[in-house]
Amino acid sequence: MRRASSLKDKEVINVSDGTRLGMVSDVEINLNDGRIEGIVVPIQGKWFGLFGKDNEYIIPWESIIKVGDEIILVEMSESIVKKFLE
C-alpha cells in the first residue's frame, strides 16, 4: 500500500508518445469515499502552478498505468497531451 504523499514529486510520463508531462505537485481526493481521483501536474512553463488551477492539469486516476519508485506512467491521447502542453 502507498500513501498519497508518496506520489508527490514523481515524474509523469505518457506512454503513448513518451512525453514528459512534469512532476506531481498534489493529488485530488474524493472526500466522500476517500479515493484518489487524480494527480495534479503543473503546466510546464507557466510559473509552476503558482497562479491558480488554470496552470495545472489533473490526470484522472484511470489514466495511470503504473506507479514506480521515481516515475508514474500514464496513457493519454495525443490531443489531450497537446492541450496540456500548450
Rank of each mutant, 00 (worst) to 15 (best):
S79G: 00
I71C: 08
L50H: 12
Q44S: 13
E37T: 07
N14D: 15
M1L: 12
V27L: 11
E86Y: 06
V15N: 04
D54L: 13
E11H: 08
G18Q: 04
T19W: 07
F84R: 05
R3N: 14
G68L: 13
V24F: 12
V24Q: 10
E56G: 05
G38W: 01
L21Y: 07
E62H: 05
K8W: 06
K46N: 10
Q44N: 10
D69F: 02
D33C: 03
G34W: 03
A4G: 10
N30Y: 00
F51G: 07
V74M: 07
P60W: 00
V81P: 00
I80H: 02
W61M: 14
S63V: 03
S16W: 01
I36A: 09
K66H: 14
I72P: 08
E75Y: 11
R2G: 05
G18L: 04
I13S: 06
I58G: 02
V27C: 13
S6L: 11
V12F: 10
I71A: 14
S63A: 15
G38K: 00
D26Q: 09
G18H: 03
K46R: 15
I72A: 12
N14P: 07
D33G: 02
V81F: 08
L31P: 00
K66D: 14
E78K: 13
M23P: 01
W61E: 11
E11C: 10
I72H: 10
V41E: 03
N14C: 14
A4W: 01
F48N: 13
K53E: 15
I36Y: 05
P60N: 05
I39Y: 09
Y57P: 01
M76G: 03
I13L: 13
I39Q: 04
W47L: 14
W61L: 08
D17H: 02
E56I: 10
S79A: 11
V12K: 00
Y57E: 12
L31G: 03
V67M: 14
E78C: 00
S77E: 14
K8F: 13
I65K: 15
E28Y: 06
L50M: 15
R2L: 14
S79Y: 08
G22W: 04
I72Y: 11
L21A: 09
E75K: 15
P60F: 01
E62N: 06
V41T: 04
E78Q: 12
L31K: 08
L50G: 11
L31W: 11
P42H: 06
I29L: 13
L50S: 13
G68T: 13
D9H: 10
V40A: 10
E70D: 15
D54C: 14
M76F: 03
I13N: 04
E78W: 09
S79W: 05
R3L: 12
K8A: 11
L85A: 06
I59P: 03
R2I: 12
L31V: 13
V74K: 02
N32A: 07
L7E: 11
